[in-house]
Design a protein around this nucleic acid. Sequence first.
DNA 1: CTGAAAGCGCTAACAG
DNA 2: CTGTTAGCGCTTTCAG
Lengths: 347, 347
Amino acid sequence: MSRTEPWLTGHIPVSPPTLADVAERAGVSRQTVSNAVNNPDLLRPGTLERVRAAIAEMGYSPNRAARNLRTRTSQLIGLRVSPVQEGTANAMMDRFVHTLVDNSAAAGYHVLLFAGDDDDPVTGYERLLRATAVDAFVVTDTYLGNPQATWLSAHRAPFVAFGRPWDQPEATHPWVDVDGAAGTRLATEHLLDRGHTRIAWIGWRKDSAIGEDRRSGWLGAMHAAGLPTTGLASRVEDTVQSGAEAAAVLLDESAPTAFVCASDTLAMGVLHTLWIRQLAPGRDVAVIGFDDSQVAQVFPVGLTSVRQPLEDVASEIVLALEGLLGHVHAPAPGVLLTPTLAIRESS
Amino acid sequence: MSRTEPWLTGHIPVSPPTLADVAERAGVSRQTVSNAVNNPDLLRPGTLERVRAAIAEMGYSPNRAARNLRTRTSQLIGLRVSPVQEGTANAMMDRFVHTLVDNSAAAGYHVLLFAGDDDDPVTGYERLLRATAVDAFVVTDTYLGNPQATWLSAHRAPFVAFGRPWDQPEATHPWVDVDGAAGTRLATEHLLDRGHTRIAWIGWRKDSAIGEDRRSGWLGAMHAAGLPTTGLASRVEDTVQSGAEAAAVLLDESAPTAFVCASDTLAMGVLHTLWIRQLAPGRDVAVIGFDDSQVAQVFPVGLTSVRQPLEDVASEIVLALEGLLGHVHAPAPGVLLTPTLAIRESS
DNA sequence: CTGAAAGCGCTAACAG
DNA sequence: CTGTTAGCGCTTTCAG
């Protein structure tokens, strides 16, 4: 592959070979070359081989634009990137994007990144759609109240969401999500196994559906174990500072021996408070975060964290996309995956 | 914009309007509509307004594939994503990609992500190039010895590198890079200002050009201050573990009061060793990392870190790309940007 | 199984 | 300043 192709050799840039060039060389019609590429079964073995040889010799690849124009597809999947949030541990998207790119490639798609500002999340989608620049979208930021999903549905644009349509039970679009409650349940049960009984929760404000979901896993596990939860829960903003303050208050008032947090960011706050109070994470007080971000992995003590199976999420999303675009009526409107626990020294 | 467009309203999906549709509605020829979009100056104000009204009414956008076929461009910039490295603090790419997407959008380009495996870094590029699927590439992983850059140059493919062609002085392609030596010099001088004199360096193996560059900044600043550096430098692998071990050895043998590290990952290792030895970062021993990763930002103590001006890198890259694609012979083959220091509690 | 004809939607090059 | 003509490279009919 890394051999120099004839048409790229010359010092004067020359346009790549076309179907017609290959056809002439192989002594067949253009159509036959097209078939050799797209429907090899239609060719007699001998012809096929001859055409293939010509293709290889000339370094031919079908022109994308021409094919797109003809087939009315682009083999492109749109993914909107929202502005980076500094100061949070959310490098999760990085991992997701990577696996999405890999999975899409296997299905013959590329990922097109486009910018979007959070004030008007819809216009980016609309432009690409009208220009028929992408075949479908992957929508990730469903936590925003999800105007994109609603808009895309209304406009019959193919898309798959990473995230459940929390507040729209009537939504029928395909989605893939991770069971946050199962994750925190896993975390809590892990701590119960370690002998902890006073396990605190630090999560987000009540208006976050994801936050409430994660909280319910902790609550359920505690109740199932017959343990009280009064005074052991806190709801704050997703910052290190808030996590640290919440931990301090909880330690003073309820003396928990372990913390389950809705995010790694909050868990870092807890670790900060422990450090100030000379408490050793994992030995004196256990801490578990959520997302298995790079911060959790690199942090010297090693932060135990709930890890989303993003590889599986990506592959399910691509599967759903293929269903959507293959005009196969996808059977599964929603897929819920279970996270795992990355256990480290902090628990 | 978020108003429902006529052609998207119906419950039966109907294809978007074409140039011809708009032309008919506006009572002009197709070419005039094309001009209204691409060369508005050519139209008489009255006609222009009439055409624009028709465009708005029908919700018309030029079909991308058709335009691409005709103009032989794709308005797409290819960016290869290599497999995620777990366990390192390198979320830098995240920030870079975001700013690249934003800057590209402003220039009328989208970013196409494609997968690449590190064993054969070239084939992904070749396929896209042959299919004329992208107009140009941005190459980021120049530290690999850079076979991509060489290959792309040889094949006269337009690309801009993020990273200098360290080992190829004869390279003529445009590149944008960050002055690592300036960054570590900044860090070292900051520590000197704070009264430190025994400042240690923990960096990478000698075969890393970037590593040697960063090391030279520390070395230069120390020498400029007339301070000795013997026994104060260590070269290890880029892992938390290695950083921790190197710090332990250096503390035992040379008793430095400050560390400058080639990466945040290594700095985390140093912090780990300090923590084990009950030394307070920033008070007992100062630590400075490199990259201002999320880890540095979120870490409870707050890790001072050299921050690459990725926004500027992205905008310079897009500038270079525009030069390349506009067939303007770009005047600047290389742009070197200076990093800043994000000062936190660890120093 | 192979070939010929047609056209996807757009814009470059002219002519009026 | 506007309209006509031509064709980018490909695939989808439909005949042979």
